[in-house]
Amino acid sequence: MDWLLIIVILLIIIVLALVVKFYNDLVNGRNKVKNSWSQIDVQLQRRNDLIPNIVETVKGYAGHEKSTFEEVTKARANMANATSVKEVAEADNMLTGALKSLFAVAEAYPELKANKNFLELQEELSDTEDKISYARQFYNDTVLKYNNLCEQFPSNIIAKLFHFEESEFFEAQEGTRATPKVKF
């Protein structure tokens, strides 16, 4: 009788320890997702801060390319107003396309391509784009690990019990890899 009680108590302790472990793993995963999202947000804000300087520099050389500047400005505003992962991804894709168009316009102006300010801004933006790309990859890797915890047995039981929700991946839209068409 005493052995049976000891075994039951040990089983209860083991089950409770597993519940605590899985709960803590899920909290840790959710917090990593939030942190990795904030890293994307920091880099997107850095890019947003660089864009007006680039636009103004290009305007000095190619002021007649009004539609390109309007497209960049609109895309930047959409980025500032986006709230969900999906909205940010859509706005980011729009902004990336607008920036491609802006740099395609800049290619047509040799004096601009040689301008020191423009080259420095272009280098900073390129560096920021690399950081954004890395942050997206890290975010998606973190989401994958967290979502696996939410879906795999036995942690999925704890996830459902404590209402842990799966996170969205940061996904590029179709057509964002297309080369922009610039007409003069």
Rank of each mutant, 00 (worst) to 15 (best):
W37K: 02
S38G: 13
Q39K: 14
I40W: 01
I40L: 09
V42S: 15
L44C: 06
Q45P: 11
R46M: 11
R46C: 13
R46P: 13
R47E: 11
D49S: 14
D49E: 15
L50T: 10
L50S: 14
I51Y: 09
P52N: 13
N53T: 01
I54D: 02
I54T: 09
E56M: 08
T57K: 02
K59S: 07
K59W: 01
K59Q: 07
G60K: 01
G63N: 08
H64R: 04
K66L: 09
S67E: 13
S67N: 11
S67T: 12
S67L: 09
F69T: 06
F69S: 10
T73N: 13
K74G: 10
A75Q: 01
A75M: 05
R76C: 03
A77G: 11
N78F: 09
N81Y: 02
A82N: 05
A82D: 03
T83S: 15
T83R: 14
S84A: 04
V85I: 10
V85D: 05
K86A: 13
V88E: 12
V88G: 09
V88C: 11
A89G: 07
D92C: 11
N93G: 15
L95N: 01
G97M: 06
G97Y: 02
K100M: 03
S101Y: 05
F103Y: 12
V105M: 02
V105P: 06
E107Y: 04
A108T: 15
A108C: 10
Y109V: 02
E111S: 15
E111H: 14
K113S: 03
A114W: 03
A114D: 08
N115R: 00
K116Q: 09
K116H: 05
N117G: 11
N117P: 13
L119D: 07
E120I: 06
E120G: 11
E120D: 14
L121K: 04
Q122R: 12
Q122I: 03
E123S: 15
E124C: 11
D127F: 10
E129H: 08
D130G: 15
D130N: 15
K131F: 09
S133H: 11
S133K: 13
S133C: 08
A135F: 00
R136D: 10
R136M: 04
Q137N: 10
Q137L: 09
F138N: 05
F138H: 03
Y139C: 02
D141L: 07
V143W: 01
V143R: 00
V143T: 03
L144M: 12
L144Y: 04
L144T: 11
Y146Q: 08
N147F: 01
L149W: 02
L149A: 04
C150A: 00
C150F: 01
C150Q: 00
F153Q: 05
P154H: 04
P154N: 00
P154E: 01
P154F: 00
S155N: 05
S155I: 02
S155E: 04
